[in-house]
Design a protein around this nucleic acid. Structure first.
Lengths: 225, 225
DNA sequence: AGAGCACAATTGTGATCACAAATTAGATCG
DNA sequence: CGATCTAATTTGTGATCACAATTGTGCTCT
């Protein structure tokens, strides 16, 4: 378990919240691989808090299915099988177009600029072969768009799914080296600018579908690790 | 905060798990109204545990958005507004047909019998005007069906949504007295027996839509409480 | 050399306590 | 009589500790 767990953390926040955000950011950015194990004392020491807030943060992540606590009490990053990954991408395909459509009427040029900025950064990271940067920019694109929907309940569901898929995606992109990825974000941006709800939904579905296809392609290789 | 918080609890389970299940069951069965407040010491004392496991259980429910912890630290049952209720029923309309369809190929006569049993009990409770019984039977019907899908990731998402809607539904049914409710469960059972996926999905969508309509009908009256 | 076993270290669980912030209650003043 | 300020109480937070179960390790015996 490497250090550098705390990039930029507000000191005034409660300890359990700081731990939660640190772990969450690390999971989303691909800093943890499926099967990795954690200890409460390790997390607590890394973030300089006691065991109590560390436990609360871990249990909160476990409730979001981002971490798993085995009956015996061990804490580990879940290893979703092909069936579970299918569930998760199906949930994305159902929920994310809804969020995008709800964001559409609230879209302005500033949002489109911000999204285009995310997409540019994404393209740069692909060109540079920076997997971590790619994952981060991809997260930023979707999160920025969906946040505009102003739908916290739906957003929470999607974020739980992203937390569950993040560890595998990091591995998937690492395997494929971000090669030959069709950029459906461009299509989404065009639909956004044209105020075309159906085209937007389709672009999101395609983007999710591409992720699902990549995972399916690699998931067979992953079993033998 | 009344007693009778523990109906039937395994003593061997960890304390935090017992507390979680007790609170969860109480929320799902309509035992808590939106805006109700809890205290860690109150929960702990009611279930005869210390504050630590009570806190973990409450925070777990908070992660599932079944409870809310205000910045100042108060614990209360959320009061979703019309916009959030729309989100939640939209999520149900998107996710639950998927679960039903996944349960279809695994359906056998035993499952149909179990579901019909739930539906019968539901009808009895409607006739008797037993709101709590109605809510419980309705939960049992959907949970039994969806569990057959064998899709834990999707199931977790749906359960989070149910936890969020449960407190309002109890109030809604209490207001309407379970009057004149079209029983879409019958249609679902027929589609299940006929192995008709589309009809099944439509029955579920109708059922969810009816719930959404009821909430919309009553939500205006609820603001002035 | 490999399987079985006992001992030691690790680890999650839960209780207790001190503390600070927030809420409530009560008294006082206008 | 009502508003406001103050004090007492309530309440969540987080640290520490003891304990039991699990895990890891090194040794022994075959």
């Amino acid at each position: 378990m490497p250090a550098a767990l705390q990039p930029k953390i507000d000191e005034t926040l409660p300890a359990h919240e700081r731990v939660y955000r640190a772990l969450r950011a690390r999971i989303l950015s691909g800093g943890m691989a499926p099967g990795d194990s954690l200890t409460l004392r390790g997390v607590a020491e890394a973030l300089d808090v006691s065991m109590t807030p560390a436990r609360e943060a871990v249990r909160r992540l476990a409730a979001e299915r981002a971490l798993e606590m085995t009956p015996s009490g061990r804490i580990l990053v879940p290893t979703p099988g092909p069936a579970q990954l299918d569930e998760l991408f199906r949930a994305r395909a159902l929920l994310e177009p809804e969020l995008a459509i709800r964001a559409l009427p609230k879209t302005d040029s500033r949002l489109i600029d911000a999204l285009r900025h995310c997409d540019d950064a994404l393209g740069r990271h692909v060109a540079a072969g920076d997997v971590a940067g790619y994952v981060r920019a991809n997260n930023a694109f979707h999160t920025t768009l969906y946040a505009r929907a102003g739908a916290p309940a739906l957003m929470a569901l999607v974020e739980s799914v992203w937390l569950q898929t993040a560890p595998v995606m990091r591995r998937v992109y690492g395997r494929l080296g971000t090669q030959a990825l069709t950029d459906y974000h461009e299509a989404a941006l065009e639909a956004l600018a044209a105020r075309n709800a159906e085209a937007l939904a389709q672009a999101i579905r395609d983007d999710v579908g591409q992720g699902a296809a990549l995972v399916a392609q690699v998931s067979l290789d992953l079993v033998d690790l």
